[in-house]
Design a protein around this nucleic acid. Structure first.
Lengths: 342, 342
DNA sequence: TAGGGCTACGCAAACGTTGGCGTGTTGAAA
DNA sequence: TTTCAACACGCCAACGTTTGCGTAGCCCTA
């Protein structure tokens, strides 16, 4: 077992000083040709690679991005990570991933740990609990310490930083508009509880769309789901009691669950019920019928977030007052089998 | 913007030495009561937290686990990460995730970068290209340097290290056995090309099961898929030409694709065709009909891998010769709607 | 009053790097 | 022969932390 070789060992072996080795390896003109040759050959032979930790300590840069998301077993978040990782890698950064599991406390702890030198900045999406508590001191603190933060998808306006989001309200509006254009009047909404920012916005879009088309908004056509466990019964009740001719669901899971329940009740899709989901993930593609959905390009979103963070990290001091940006990612409707073509 | 406070700053402010501050904060009996009080109060006020990088450098421990997987937009891998992250966190470790995108070169580069001090050990699943090239020098090198490696799912026997796998062959055998027990004779296999280790093993299980039941194995009932693009046409040909009464697919995607294609061709599922998949993911649960599948508990698998790695990391020197283990994770068949109940 | 022991602290090394600056040696020009 | 530049290298500090060991000051005892 040969441990990693250090500058010191090379120096000792070659009977020169540590700094000579360092400079020789970095091709400094200070060092003579033959010494350089000797050092470089030796280093190559022993496969010398500088120690990242030592470099981080010296440079006060870790070349690492901290990602904090609610969960990873979720297609959208996985795609975002994928996008971040790609752009990060292209720019010489690594990513360290922490999951909050929708818990405020875990989010805080993770941030604090990573903020103590492990990362140069953060890309994050808020946990449900954090959105509910509206307590963002941990994020503010990190920003105050001079670490840039980029928030995506589940964001808050209470913290000033770069953000990457889709126009949730507009996207929802367009989805509902699409349904209205098809002639549906009895459009139900399956959404999350209000404190989830994206849920709230999508709900607003739904309401606005109906209002603009002079379709009355019935509260009992709106189902707000707290957690996935109890979702079936609520949707079932909606289908039975209200008999909507279309459903707009704010995520894939709600959409596919609606479809499955409807199928079980003998409601034909899309003939008797059209369904539109949100987030173009695996489920929408492979469910039968496949689901018409508002596509949200996670890879692109992650890539943009990474780009924004890295730009800020590599900004010169003088530019540092550049103000924060909020980037809107475009969405589009992917038409599939769950909406009728009438 | 108040930057992080260091021991040195506290020392200066309080007019004591750095080591006094350090010892006071760690409650050393060497330091007088009142000095301790003063230092601790000051540190708390300024929210002092030791710098992880400096600690890593000093202790030669990063408390970080490197994860290298082919891709993250893949339910199974996401669940494994989730399991790793959880156990890692419980033990004070963070995880740094790198994606190989099925590329040998990226796998090598990622490992080399992380091995230069960024992580204490690795948990990995091989990229397709690596399995094909059978070149594992990068892994061997890391192990030689004294960093433990735990491989999961896509492993190789050419490298000695801890491993966590399911008994792919047995699981496949049982799935096919299940189909045979239902009376099917015309059982097709949709699998990967042979160099993917798990694909190969599952194929072997299929063949063994048929052999044991004296059912002839027809090569043309076996479809080997290289990449997902061309998969539809091959499966379509199989369905049309061979008219199998059951299909065993080595992953979710192949299973759901088979089902969708069959449905398009008017083949009723499960009445005319039963399908069993592998990996109990989102797709199997939400597809219609939902898919009977061999469940592979990714969370548990990741947790076990993390546990094995951490145990080895925290092993005393003297125990270090403990030999490598390969842990088998149990699978079980989840019966759903895609297999007939006859 | 000298010696011993204890308390409470500081010094310095170490982890692995980098880079500014100081310096010994050489050779050539004056 | 003296002087000076250029070259080639080493020293040292710094990044932030921990910890073994040295020691100044004090009190107590013989």
């Amino acid at each position: 077992m040969k441990r990693k070789v250090t500058l010191k060992q090379i120096a000792k072996e070659l009977d020169v000083s540590i700094s000579t080795v360092s400079k020789a390896l970095r091709n400094s003109p200070e060092i003579g040709e033959d010494t350089k040759q000797k050092v470089q050959a030796f280093a190559k032979f022993y496969n010398y690679k500088p120690n990242n930790i030592a470099l981080s300590l010296k440079n006060k840069k870790t070349k690492t991005i901290g990602i904090i998301i609610p969960e990873i077993v979720h297609h959208f978040f996985a795609t975002v990570i994928s996008g971040i990782e790609q752009v990060a890698n292209e720019n010489g950064y690594n990513v360290i991933v922490c999951l909050s599991n929708e818990s405020f406390d875990k989010e805080v702890i993770n941030m604090e740990i990573l903020a103590n030198g492990s990362t140069d900045g953060f890309i994050m999406s808020l946990s449900k609990e954090t959105q509910q508590k509206k307590d963002f001191h941990h994020i503010q603190e990190v920003i105050n310490q001079g670490m840039p933060v980029v928030m995506f998808d589940r964001i808050t306006n209470d913290v000033l930083c770069d953000k990457v989001i889709i126009d949730d309200q507009l996207a929802a509006y367009e989805a509902v508009d699409f349904l209205v254009a098809k002639g549906f009047k009895n459009i139900a909404l399956v959404t999350t509880v209000d404190y989830v920012s994206v849920g709230r916005l999508r709900t607003d879009g739904y309401i606005n769309a109906l209002n603009d088309h002079d379709i009355p908004v019935h509260e009992d056509m709106i189902v707000k789901i707290e957690d996935i466990e109890g979702c079936a019964s609520k949707i079932e009740a909606l289908l039975k009691d209200k008999r909507p001719d279309a459903i707009f669901a704010v995520n894939e899971l709600f959409a596919v669950t609606s479809i499955k329940l409807a199928a079980k009740m003998g409601i034909k899709i899309p003939e008797e019920l059209s369904v539109i989901g949100f987030t173009d993930g695996i489920i929408s593609q492979f469910s039968s019928p496949s689901i018409t959905t508002v596509s949200q390009n996670g890879i692109y979103m992650g890539g943009r977030a990474a780009k924004m963070l890295i730009e800020r990290l590599e900004m010169e001091e003088e530019e540092e007052n550049e103000q924060y940006r909020t980037e809107l990612i475009e969405t589009h409707l992917v038409e599939r089998e769950s909406t009728s073509t009438m």
